[in-house]
Nucleic acid binder design. Structure first.
Lengths: 236, 236
DNA sequence: CGGAACATTGACCCATGTCAAGTGTCGTGG
DNA sequence: CCACGACACTTGACATGGGTCAATGTTCCG
């Protein structure tokens, strides 16, 4: 009936993190007028179980979207980057936590507004459907990766997905920042931080990547990285 | 723009296998008039990459929905049971394989009809959105399970999800058939068939389940099983 | 300068995968 | 009705990728 925590973005869905389609124009307009809100690093935009109040569009920064088990084990379902929309869904409560991994700015759209838009814009329902369908496709790609791939394949896929994201945004596909911590990456890929770190080290020793800083990556050989990823549609 | 392979069912989403919401009435009516098609065990209803022609509603039997990597590794994304709808999506091609695990009957609805219904039924778009959002929630629950849980937790969750499905359908929640093979279960849970088999054996020795036949399960202590599953929302 | 948070590295261990027999179970044909 | 073959499942022995535990480094910020 209402809205749940998913994220949709303007680009084609891709395994690791690409988000869904851009919703209808009226929706975008409503969002553009939305109030700007600042979320500090580690602060929650919303938590699983919170009553749904708004849908958000990321302006700057990055969020981690995740679920946790009772004992604290955590599965990061994806990261939301500028342009992505989070908070869509059908439940009365958010079904994931949305936590900033760095200082982030979001535009807020009250769900009530969305409902109004949906009423006045017959195409909006279908747009939302498309958006969420793409998100579903991305989640399935991630599941294929975490369920079947080795640590090396997962990390390579992850890096390639970030590279592709950069390329779509007309930025250097061979060099980018990792806004999230190793813990976030590990919980995303279903690995421990030690394994993530060791895999990065191995990629360095293979001269496929460089890590000028621990949160800055340079891809030296994207093709070989793709060979390692060993499959088409990887995560980000 | 069109329809991709997802499945939606009449019930609430639940971790392992529950599918989404029942789509709009007009849609159901159109489906009810759809042609009946028989799919033999192991036969494909459709394959990944096929041009999308129809959406299907399962009448009897069961399907496995899965993706494969180039080298043959397989991730089963879910099983479709009677009442579930498969084939929805936004791409021009199916994005998963749908293969019968036992003789199955489905009702066929040409996508063109669906588009017509969507045009004449303004609520349909929103219904589809709801359906796919529930499917997404189920997929995320499954990802949490395969990404973070141990073999025992996964198998226990899987059995409990089947139990819950039975309960929703007013059937015995403590006794049911496993229409799929160990291979299907393993590829669903991200385990090998040997591990699945050993875990079943261990559950037997703990007197939590019985396996009168290898494809028939009896749950002897659902509460203890739930303790083992160790978390709320498991897969099916 | 000091300390907190994050990342890396090493040593070791274990859950699960791999490989290899066995053991049903079912359907078919003699 | 039985024999056979195919296929699925189970079980055992062993291997290993990645987890766990424990330091040690590094970076950043107050």
């Amino acid at each position: 009936m209402s809205i749940q925590s998913i994220s949709v973005s303007p680009q084609r869905s891709s395994a690791f993190s690409a988000r869904g389609a851009r919703p209808a124009v009226g929706f975008d307009q409503a969002l553009a007028q939305g109030q700007l809100r600042r979320v500090e690093a580690k602060e929650f935009l919303f938590a699983e179980g919170d009553a749904i109040s708004h849908v958000y569009k990321i302006e700057t920064g990055a969020l981690a979207l995740y679920k946790v088990l009772a004992d604290g084990r955590r599965q990061v379902m994806g990261f939301a980057y500028p342009g992505d929309i989070v908070g869509l869904g059908v439940d009365a409560e958010y079904t994931m936590n949305a936590q900033a991994v760095k200082p982030t700015r979001v535009r807020c759209l009250p769900v009530m507004s969305l409902r109004q838009s949906a009423a006045s814009d017959p195409a909006l329902g279908f747009r939302l459907y498309e958006a969420i369908a793409r998100e579903l496709a991305a989640t399935r790609d991630l599941m294929l990766t975490t369920g079947q791939r080795s640590a090396m394949e997962r990390v390579a896929s992850f890096l390639l997905a970030l590279s592709r994201r950069n390329q779509r945004n007309d930025q250097d596909p061979a060099s980018f920042e990792l806004p999230m911590t190793r813990t976030d990456i590990g919980d995303f890929l279903g690995l421990t931080i030690e394994t993530v770190s060791r895999t990065f080290t191995k990629l360095k020793s293979m001269h496929l990547i460089e890590l000028p800083h621990s949160n800055q990556v340079k891809l030296l050989d994207i093709d070989k990285l793709a060979d390692l990823a060993h499959g088409d549609a990887p995560p980000a």
